[in-house]
């Protein structure tokens, strides 16, 4: 049986209006996440990765304007449906300890959506499974190490029973070994039939752990590719940016990409990567480049074949 598609994002754009100035933070973003898969969303800082997670949850600041369509199991995500889905069907695995209430013991923070007795027992069992000692239940966030924090946050996600997990940068600040450990947990979630959206700037780890990789650049999606396409010299990849990102990794030759990603204020309608692209032609600067399917993935580049 084909795995069900849980999340569909079609042509999502997010703009912020502040003091009459409109800034585009995300534009024309389309992707899907299926049951049983890990979809990694990679990109540099400021590419709009975390914003994507907040947009899916409907938790953007008040001055954000969202266009496009997002559905969960075919149901449109909006102000009416999201309050029922947040924390039950869709949940966030945040990136750091600051997402925990500094004044509440972590055990309680994991189980508070449930009734106390049942929740406490289940949390204790989960903590044991994740190798956290029972005393951790009574600890406060400031007393946790980075690895412990991740495991506490993972426990909360498991306990929620949510099917779609948005994991926002779960690995920074962890040793390579601990990070791999964390990613193994994500893989376990996928095996249990959940869909995991892994937001990360670590392409290396993303390729190692995810099924598909979506590459974000300057607020837009340049490519989605099966993780196995990130191999050798990156010839199987569709977009020049993905290729240069891949080849910039130390083990792939350490070739730097010159130039900088445009910031939200200076974004253009045409290909945002054109100024840095080795394959650019006059055509790239002329008009917006649409996202199109190509070889089992998607790409936003007129030259890709």
């Amino acid at each position: 049986m084909e795995n069900q598609t849980l999340l569909t994002i079609e042509d999502l754009s997010v703009q912020f209006v502040s003091a009459g100035i409109r800034t585009t933070a995300l534009s024309g973003l389309s992707l899907t996440a299926k049951e049983g898969e890990i979809l990694a969303v990679v990109g540099a800082s400021g590419a709009g990765k975390s914003l994507l997670a907040h947009a899916v949850l409907g938790l953007l600041p008040k001055n954000a304007q969202v266009t496009g369509r997002m559905t969960y199991k075919g149901q449109v995500l909006n102000e009416k449906t999201l309050p029922r889905l947040r924390g039950k069907e869709i949940t966030l695995i945040p990136q750091s300890v600051t997402y925990l209430d500094p004044l509440m013991p972590v055990g309680r923070q994991v189980y508070y959506p449930m009734n106390k007795q049942e929740g406490r027992a289940k949390t204790a069992a989960l903590f044991e499974e994740y190798g956290l000692s029972p005393e951790v239940m009574k600890k406060y966030p400031f007393e946790l190490s980075g690895g412990m924090t991740r495991r506490v946050l993972f426990s909360a996600a498991v306990l929620s029973g949510a099917k779609l997990l948005l994991a926002d940068e779960p690995t920074p600040g962890l040793s390579r070994e601990t990070a791999r450990h964390v990613l193994r947990h994500l893989r376990a979630f996928a095996k249990e039939g959940r869909a995991v959206l892994l937001i990360t700037h670590d392409l290396d780890l993303a390729v190692e752990c995810a099924d598909r990789v979506a590459v974000l650049y300057a607020g837009t999606l340049l490519e989605t590719a099966p993780a196995c396409d990130f191999a050798a010299d990156g010839a199987a990849l569709r977009h020049p940016y993905s290729q240069s990102l891949w080849n910039a990794l130390p083990q792939n030759g350490f070739h730097p990409v010159t130039g900088n990603m445009p910031s939200p204020g200076e974004r253009v309608e045409s290909c945002p990567f054109a100024p840095r692209c080795p394959k650019k032609t006059a055509l790239c600067r002329e008009k917006p480049v649409p996202l199109r399917p190509l070889r089992g993935g998607t790409v936003r580049c007129i030259h890709a074949t």
Partner: peptide, 23 residues
């Protein structure tokens, strides 16, 4: 961040305020 996370876990405004805000 912790209020954002509370909301991401389905807490309404008042519940989040009572549970995390007041303290």
């Amino acid at each position: 961040d912790y209020m954002l996370y509370a909301r991401a876990r389905g807490e309404g405004e008042w519940t989040a305020l009572r549970r995390h805000g007041l303290r």
